[in-house]
Amino acid sequence: MNIIIQSTLKTLQKTQYILTNLSNEQLSNTSVSPYYSSIGSHIRHILDFYGCILNKDLKNRIDLTARSRNTAVENCCNLAAEYLNIIIERLKDTNYNVDDIVMVTDDLGLGKIEMAYTLAAALSQANSHAIHHYAIISYILNGLNISLEDSDFGYNPTTPKKAIQNN
């Protein structure tokens, strides 16, 4: 299995951990300022991003703006876990050539544009994107007074361990 796929699966294990340790009420709680978003909305967003990549068409086109946005996933740990498992199984079951060129459609703020990526670059972006959202989830968890037994949750793998331990 490719190292990028392995890294992605390792990152997504953190979503499994969250979902097994939260209630539906905690998952959907929107009481933490300043954005009043829920842990579930961030998890759904992470999974939608991967879903877009995995839904590349036969012409190797990926549309990052074509997210499913199934809000039921944001409110139910079981539905979120089912969605996560679909993403994980699709990553495991397919033999990806990560060097393939894919055309990625995204909206960077000025309307949709199409850009050439490698599949590796798209998956790498999704992995970093997930970690970024884990940092936001960590902030929400803190606001809800929920602690996880994962000292590097929400930290990029390149963050020095000393910095993680001091926080």
Rank of each mutant, 00 (worst) to 15 (best):
N2R: 01
I3Y: 07
S7R: 12
T8C: 15
L9E: 06
L9M: 04
Q13Y: 12
K14G: 15
T15L: 13
T15P: 01
Q16P: 00
Y17S: 11
I18G: 08
L19G: 11
T20I: 06
E25S: 15
L27A: 06
N29P: 10
V32W: 04
S33V: 04
Y35S: 03
Y36G: 02
Y36T: 02
Y36W: 03
S38L: 02
G40M: 04
H42V: 03
H45S: 13
I46M: 12
D48K: 12
F49H: 14
Y50K: 04
Y50P: 06
G51D: 12
N55T: 07
D57E: 05
L58W: 00
K59W: 03
N60K: 15
N60L: 15
I62F: 00
I62H: 03
L64S: 00
T65A: 05
A66M: 05
A66W: 00
A66L: 13
A72V: 06
A72N: 09
C76W: 12
C77N: 11
I86S: 09
R90M: 12
N95E: 14
Y96K: 00
D99Q: 10
D100P: 00
V102C: 03
V102H: 03
V104K: 08
V104P: 03
D106P: 00
D107S: 04
K112I: 01
K112Q: 13
I113S: 12
E114F: 04
M115Y: 07
M115F: 08
Y117H: 11
A120C: 11
L123K: 01
Q125C: 02
A126W: 05
A126Y: 07
S128T: 07
S128K: 01
A130I: 08
I137D: 03
Y139K: 02
I140V: 13
L141P: 03
L141Y: 10
L144N: 06
L148H: 09
L148K: 09
E149T: 05
D150W: 09
S151F: 14
D152C: 12
D152G: 03
G154L: 08
P160W: 06
P160S: 07
K162L: 03
A163F: 07
A163E: 14
N167M: 09
